[in-house]
Amino acid sequence: MGTESETRGAADAARTRGSLVRGLALRWDTAVGVLLVAVFAIGLGSTDGFGSADNLAFAFDDIVEVAVLALPMTLLVVAGQVDLSVASMLGLGSALTGALWNAGWAFEAIVPVVLLAGAAGGLLNGWLVTRVGLPSLAVTIGTLALYRGLASVALGSDAVTGFPQKYADWAVDTTTVPGTFLTYPVLLFAVLAVLTAIVLHATGLGRALFAIGAQEEAAYFAGIRVKRIKLLLFVVTGLFASFTGVLFTLRYGSARADNGLGFEMLVIASVLLGGIDFDGGKGTLFGAVAGVLLIGVLKNLLTLNDIANEVQVIVTGLLLVASVLTPRVIAAFVERRHRRAADSPS
């Protein structure tokens, strides 16, 4: 393998590989689920304090923005799109919250404005993708810079603090839903995750998303409103992203323009780790949630074991590469075995 002679039968091979990758992807999300349980069990056995209610509340609360963002991102990637601007929108949401708070607005008035800004940002992404016809990757690299830039313009390098206590209390990890170790934001995530799973796997809209991701033209010719659906996805993503901006601000009690810097990578890493195919058309929400939780649990375990933050960065990178590489390596291996099996009798 590895020379240009491998190119023979490229189309056929790609097709077989496609179906093999798909077959594996179905099992891939299960595998990530199993891995999550295994890591969890290892954590319980090896690390003191990992299983405590306080720590688990912290561990899940710590990644709640990434987890919330992973939900619309899963829908986008299934539909063959991507939004790299989510973390910048988080930052913009946070910066707007801070700037308006500084300007003396009531917190109750700030939130709708921030959400509206998020929807508008999503609308811009969606408009450029669906109406101008640009690839979502290029568009959202641009808006990644744009929204983070606007966040800086709005708030500069200031940090705004002193938000109303009642909202802050709601968000912090020391407040839990009575009788559980879950914080309110994590509970909210759980509800959103169930709703997203229903949309993706049990509704016509979900079917349409898979069809659009797998073969956009065929979906359009089947009467599916491709552009409208994509636009809607980007708007919802923008909305979620600005909401996580408010959430992040409350959890840390500090509004800054650079809040959530680089989170887009974590979100995408989680989604891909969960077996959502970057080329669209394949994956399950269960996988994506398992991917997010795996990253969260790993992060927590590494921290508890005093492993440096830099190593955590490396681990995230490795996970990201492994999540896309492993299914393909397995597929190539299976394919070669098949070929050998087919060759041997004749």
Partner: peptide, 19 residues
């Protein structure tokens, strides 16, 4: 040779090298 999407791989490499 791995045949994986460039965006994802180089994003991962960004993390790894930075780390």
């Amino acid at each position: 040779f791995g045949g994986v999407p460039a965006l994802v791989v180089t994003l991962g490499m960004l993390y790894i090298i930075q780390g």
